[in-house]
């Protein structure tokens, strides 16, 4: 066997988080189905699973990003994995996880759309066109993928902030993470969800959709690079 490397670490971290996802997705789907059956709100019946899963998936990824530092960074370094390889492995596992959640969500959405012909569980669900682009599958899925990745990195940022710099560093990391997540949400909503006092309303709808993707990809890349710089010299706690 050769030296522990990022591939091995990536596979192991994906397997660990994959087990959590096996719990997460069926629970969210069960809630979605339950709401479709029992909720009196008619508009719920019009939301596809792909849309419904977006927020819970983002929160799930945020939590995964936090846990992956506190529960496993020390453990892997203790077994001879460098911080660099651990970090690369983590990013790969996060991408894999986002891709898996997105793919399974698309399959479940397709399944529920098909099922509505047979069983009236999901009354009118049809994937919504994404930001008036006409794309019902590819662009929403890609947007979810990027959002999940960004939330994961926000979670990693919070955790590494506390792990490396303690209380104040952690508090600063939380503020930065909230800011980061807000940027993502604002870009997708294409407006400020809550108008800020004194700040003129900004209409992002003039920004072309490809440009939105580009901005988000740049933000994610920059965040990953910054987190790598912080992680690569982090002292490991003997605990």
């Amino acid at each position: 066997m050769k030296t522990a490397d990022w591939k091995k670490t990536g596979v192991d971290l994906f397997a660990i988080q994959g087990k959590w996802t096996l719990w997460f997705l069926p629970i969210v789907f069960a809630v979605y189905t339950g709401l479709n059956i029992f909720s009196p709100a008619e508009e719920l019946g019009e939301i596809s699973f792909l849309t419904f899963v977006r927020t819970p998936a983002n929160i799930f990824m945020l939590i995964c990003g936090i846990i992956i530092v506190f529960a496993f960074l020390t453990h892997f370094v203790k077994y001879g994995v460098t911080r660099k390889n651990y970090f690369i492995g983590t990013v790969i596992s996060a991408a894999g996880l986002s891709l898996t959640i997105m793919t399974v969500s698309m399959i479940l959405t397709g399944g529920s759309v098909a099922l509505q012909q047979v069983i009236p569980l999901y009354t009118q669900v049809t994937p919504e066109p994404f930001l008036n682009t006409g794309s019902q599958w590819i662009l929403p899925a890609l947007a979810s993928f990027l959002s999940m990745l960004l939330y994961y990195m926000a979670g990693w940022g919070i955790a590494i902030g506390f792990y490396r710099y303690g209380g104040w560093g952690g508090a600063f990391a939380i503020i930065s993470a909230v800011f980061l997540m807000a940027i993502s949400d604002i870009l997708w909503a294409r407006e400020f969800p809550i108008p800020l006092p004194g700040v003129p309303a900004v209409d992002f709808s003039i920004v072309p959709v490809p440009f939105l993707f580009l901005i988000l990809m740049m933000i994610i890349s920059g965040t990953i690079w910054l987190l790598y710089l912080i992680t690569r010299t982090t002292p490991i706690k003997v605990e």
């Binding site: 030296t3 522990a4 490397d5 370094v77 203790k78 001879g80 994995v81 460098t82 911080r83 660099k84 390889n85 690569r232 003997v238």
Partner: peptide, 14 residues
Amino acid sequence: FENARLMSEIAFIY
């Protein structure tokens, strides 16, 4: 420090 070759050959047990 951050040396993959050396780290794979050093075990720190506590």
